[in-house]
Design a protein around this nucleic acid. Structure first.
Lengths: 138, 138
DNA sequence: GTAACTGCAAAATATTTGCATCCTT
DNA sequence: AAGGATGCAAATATTTTGCAGTTAC
């Protein structure tokens, strides 16, 4: 498990540091996506908020994590699957945000449906976020 | 046209003020969605930023405008169609963000496809945002 | 007249940048 | 050793809150 995380960093040609290992660890442990604030808490404030900003930014650039935008203007981060590469995210799954507990799920099993778009537009990537109530909150 | 805007406010039992008329006017004039900063510029800085915050918040609550979350953590605002009511948005259309010019389009003609979600989850509302290149930028 | 709305001030929060130091390779 | 990564300080931007004055109804 830890070895797996190390592999991820190596593949992206990033230095292996305590900070990055820890952040990847909490992302991996939690099935759902985390906000910057969540990560700050879960890492036990071992690191600077600023370092977390920079680390997450690096991860997004390298295709290690992906972002899920939510309607309340907070960004959620989640680990990408193998298909992602630097600069090219293929989040072909649907996201689900529970309005009761606030948890953001990556529904890996559910793939994004094809959407017809108007002539002249070309799609690069499609984002589906569903709001509702999750299985734990009913 | 102006009368139409006045109607919108009346229907939501909001006072008709210069501020609100102006903000609705710029939202109506622009076919695409606007950020807070856009609105601030387009209203010619006639009003306080704070008033704009509060006005937009009120509009969202009343179902007059809807929010489109973007991956870069900025919120875009756009006028709702008639189907929306207070507390209940029915944005059953797809949004498109051009990565070249940054314009956010409401693709009113394109409706959101049905998405199968796992057992135990219940969907309340589905959000589809497509990133790509728009017809003006190719 | 009354409740809703606005503007100003100030506080709280979030994010970015520069630079010196430290660590991974 | 060299370049990447981190932490601290500080600058900047964003959003929220309280309150007094103003305005629409």
């Amino acid at each position: 498990m830890k070895a797996e995380i190390v592999e991820i960093l190596k593949n992206s040609q990033l230095h292996i540091t305590e900070n990055r290992l820890k952040i990847l660890e909490v992302l991996q442990k939690n099935a759902h996506a985390l906000s910057h604030a969540d990560i700050e808490k879960l890492t036990g404030k071992l690191f600077d908020r600023i370092t977390i900003y920079r680390t997450l930014q690096t991860f997004v650039e390298k295709g290690i994590v992906h972002i899920i935008p939510t309607s309340d203007n907070s960004i959620m981060y989640a680990l990408c699957k193998e298909e992602c590469s630097a600069g090219h995210h293929h989040d072909d799954h649907v996201h689900f945000i529970c309005s009761s507990c606030g948890t953001t799920y990556c529904l890996d099993q559910v793939s994004v449906p094809a959407v017809q778009i108007p002539k002249g537009f070309s799609a690069h990537d499609t984002n589906v976020v569903i709001n509702g109530v999750c299985k734990n909150c009913r």
